[in-house]
Structure formats: C-alpha cells, structure tokens
Amino acid sequence: MERRGFLRWFTLLFGALCGGSGLVSLLGRRPQDGGWQVVAKPEEFEGQPALRVRLAVRAGWETAERPIYLVRDGEGIKALDARCTHLGCTVRFKEGEFRCPCHRGVFDAAGQPVSGPVSVPLPTLETRVQDGAIEVRA
C-alpha cells in the first residue's frame, strides 16, 4: 500500500477509535449496586400507614437518592417507588393516598392508579426484614 493511502486509513481508524470509545463510554452500562439496603427500623414503621425512606443509587460519580415509600401489604411490608409513573415527579402521601404534585395523578395506598393522568401502578421493590431492620433491594 502506498504511504498516503495508509495514512488516510490510519487517520480514519484513529478517529473511529476516539469517537467510538467516547460513544461507548457515554451510552454503555455502568456498574450498579443492586444489593440490599437498610432503610428503616420496624419501630419507625409501626402504626404508620406509610413511611418515606430513601434508597441510595449510583448516578454518574454521585450517590443520589431515590425516594421510596414503605406501605402495608396485609401483614407484610411493601416498598413502592415514589416516582410517578406518568412523568417521574415524586408522589407524596396525603390523606391515605399518593398524590403527584406535578400533574395531579392519584394512587391508592397500595400504589394502584386512581385518578389523573396515571394508568400504571407505582413499581414495587423487593423488601425483607433482617436483623431487626427493614431492607429494600436497590
């Protein structure tokens, strides 16, 4: 191959390497901590219809918080993702139901859609009680 042709290929390849690795790093998956986290003590939840707790999630170089609600599920405990299934605002527990301040979506205490622009229930997260603490899987 003549020298000019080689240089051109080399330059193209090098450019593809730079741009490609940039794209992959931007779009590729990052390590996630999917483990169990202690969110509350059973005493804190006793006698409450709902309890707002926070789950730590990795976001880029930061540790961010994801708001979670613990609610009653018969005898057990259920953890609901507090992000509204409509557009992702944080729902608040008020008068026995979850209300989204952004677009007036309402979910019942079990996270089922009631009214407003919502049709998908609040997602449930795995919970367990271990060593005297309520844990949620991130």
Partner: peptide
C-alpha cells in the same frame, strides 16, 4: 394554578424516616 389538594407536602402527622440512613459511604 396549583391545586392545594396537590400541594407539594404530605400529612404533617406522617413521619419521615431517618434522613440520610442510606447515603453514608
């Protein structure tokens, strides 16, 4: 306008769990 029923606050009686329980490194 914001509907006060949907104001961005919850029942005053409702406790908030240990704030930074999980965000400690």
């Amino acid at each position: 306008e914001v509907d006060p029923e949907f104001a961005n606050e919850e029942d005053a009686s409702l406790p908030i769990a240990t704030d930074d329980t999980n965000v400690l490194t």
